[in-house]
Design a protein around this nucleic acid. Sequence first.
RNA 1: GCGGGUGUAGCGAAGCUGGUUAUCGCACCGGCCUGUCAAGCCGGGGAUCGCGGGUUCAAGUCCCGUCGCUCGCGCCA
Length: 606
Amino acid sequence: MYIDIAESICYFIFMEKMKRTHTCGELNASFENSTVILNGWVHKNRNHGGVHFINVRDRYGITQVVIDEDATEELKAKAEGLKFEYCIAITGVVRKRPAEMVNPKMSTGDIEVKALDIEVLNTCEVLPFMVSETESDAKEDLRLKYRYIDLRSKGMQDRIRLRHEVAFATREFLIGDGFYEIETPTLIKATPEGARDFVVPSRIHPGKFFALPQSPQLYKQILMVSGFDKYFQIARCYRDEDPRGDRQLEFTQVDLEMSFVSADDVYDVVERMMKHIFAKTMNVELAVPFRRISYHQALNSYGSDKPDLRFGMEFVDFDAIASDCGFSVFKDAVANGGNVKAIKVDGAAESYSRKKITELEDQAKIYGAKGLAWMKVAGGKLDGGVSKFFEDKQEEILSLFDAKDGDLLLFMADSWKVACTALGAVRVKVAKDLGLIDPMRFEFAWINDFPLFEWNEDEQKWDPAHHMFSMPKPEFLSSIKSNPGAVLGDIYDLVCNGYELASGSIRVHNPEIQQEIFDVVGFPKEEAEKRFGFLLNAFRYGAPPHGGIAPGLDRLIMIMSARESIKDVIAFPKNNNASSPMDESPAEILDEQINELHLRVVEEDK
RNA sequence: GCGGGUGUAGCGAAGCUGGUUAUCGCACCGGCCUGUCAAGCCGGGGAUCGCGGGUUCAAGUCCCGUCGCUCGCGCCA
């Protein structure tokens, strides 16, 4: 590249002259009469004719610069020429604002900088959207296309800073607790289970491919075999699945693994780590230990394996009354081995018209429910909806729910799982509708006792519910093959505010148990050897008992900053269509590259 | 793959049952203004109403198709 020497020298001299002495967030009355230089962006520009104000912004804050009436015409003209987001250097003198002009909303509101000189470091074209004081109101796709501008907004700056601080606090805690930070490869062997792999073709090995890791799972287990008994890594993971509000193609996990531990040891480390992170970065004191809820109980009481515990509305079991009632939908559900689950919504009878209840029903139907039954309580009696079927059971029902006038009762009858999950979705929608959720509360819980296997209806076989390397709980070791459906795994999730924040387990380190698990899910020995023989091999050389967990960093920051999209806490996320509007990836590659990688692109028929 | 929502100037929105020249705020351009901090005042430019068909005397508005985005379901061990 051609470099203009003279220009470089000029630039050097210039930067020496205009280099900032202070940031835009640090000046206050104690700097009175200091001559300072600020570097930053034109945030606001207000010309009152005689007097002219410029708000200069950098990542530390905003400082008001004043061009007084007595300024030179040249300086006034320079100020007049400034537009939004010009990058500028200001030389000036700090002065206290007159008492009535102090701005308490600004950290630098006690002072202003009287400009002596203004230098434009770079101009800025007309913006596609304004840099927001808080959060941009532009559509997300546009924000992603011009991410560099969006990232200037206060909200994004705050979250990126929080993310940095959380990552630092995480390292600080884990290293302090004796963990080693160890990197693992990102070009690895594809694994058959789980999510779809992102795949990388090999130039050197025609027809062969690397995969990007869905997580460092196998490598961290091998590190245990190597004796690094406390490992962690802030690891990028890749899964080629459709994105969601809380899911991206690439995401970051605080991956950790320990040897010679039980689940309780893992809980303890993670609880202390979360406590440290929240105290350090948000000044929030988390109550530990976190409560523990079994998978079955979570589903049975909240209709989710990641329940939002910031509000109540626990499910009420309605089977006893339903099994002997005149409402055939309820009666049949129980008779057919299903369940009737219900919730009471305090004082919500008014808020929920038939139309609003239909909205709840629609929500339930997304999760496979066939309908949603309801009753209201009025005048000490059941009213409306399906209440006519329960006239003879009024007292029983009112006392079961401890219901009072104005309460709304919602019922879901179906198979246990559908009744629970569908009513769980309704529970969350009701809480959102009624504003029962405090966004700045953090309700953590451990969900454990997950089943090790789940029955695959389509293929009529057992699938691993988590992954194939999770240990059964000790009491099920002898019945893995005889009664797979009943086996609970030593598997645990950390949930918070309705999100799965982390997932982990105690791992299988014993070849016989591993083989039994492979047998149950019908995974042939040869296939196992081929796919992760390296792990099974490693286990033959004195593998220690071990276990671990992997909190999702993106989701953690999302929860901490009370956002509902993971995109809001990632500097350069992909959009919902799994592409990046800013750099326009993914993109086609050159024919030379395709050839070199021994690939051929097949046009898909429409 | 499926469902909900949405698409109107650079940005955010309004536009009811079809009916003059498509409206408002911010931004942009010109002018005025001595204390603002969402500055204010006057004036101006800027829109093939996502795209393609159709119905109609007449379509931003109704119908069909299609595309983008977004939220969710499936999927994500």
